[in-house]
Computed example of a mutant assay.
Amino acid sequence: MRSSRQARILLCILIAAVGAAGWSVLALSRGERVSAIWVVAAAVGSYLIAQRFYARFIARRVTRPEAVAALCTPRTDSVEITPPKLTPA
């Protein structure tokens, strides 16, 4: 569990570094031709970082997921719900 969290953090740092390198090349290349790959790297890095934090904001503040709502069928003490029996075709 801990190693997967560290892997995600490392991946985010790597994406941020690629995006920062792309923006740095774009900002520091004065008068020189800039390769399109640096523009793509800067854009992809920026979009992935923004998506990560905006998705977290939407999940926490707007939708507010609940653990109880994750159940597909309601459970009650008085009624037992059983799935239908399937017959082979």
Rank of each mutant, 00 (worst) to 15 (best):
V25Y: 14
F53E: 01
R52F: 05
L11C: 13
A17G: 10
A42R: 07
A42S: 14
C12Q: 13
W38T: 06
T73K: 09
P83C: 13
A36L: 12
V44E: 10
L14T: 15
A41R: 09
F57K: 05
T82C: 13
L71Y: 03
P83K: 08
S4T: 07
L48K: 00
I49H: 07
A59T: 08
A7M: 10
R60S: 11
A59M: 02
A41E: 14
A89V: 02
A50Y: 07
Y54M: 03
T63L: 11
L10Q: 06
I81R: 00
L86S: 12
S46G: 04
P83W: 12
V34A: 11
I49W: 08
Y54V: 02
P88Y: 07
W38L: 05
I37W: 10
S35Y: 05
A55I: 01
L48Q: 04
V40F: 08
V18Y: 07
W38G: 05
G45P: 06
E80F: 06
A89L: 05
L26I: 15
Y47P: 00
L48S: 02
R60D: 13
L11S: 09
V79G: 01
A69N: 04
A20D: 08
L28P: 04
L86W: 08
A20E: 03
A17I: 06
R61G: 12
L26P: 12
R75E: 06
C12A: 12
P65R: 03
A89E: 09
A41I: 04
Q6E: 11
A21F: 09
G22W: 06
V40E: 15
S78H: 03
P65H: 05
E80Y: 01
S4V: 08
A67S: 15
R33H: 15
D77H: 03
Y54Q: 06
I49Y: 07
S35G: 15
L14Q: 13
A70F: 00
T82N: 12
A21P: 01
A16N: 07
R56L: 07
R64C: 15
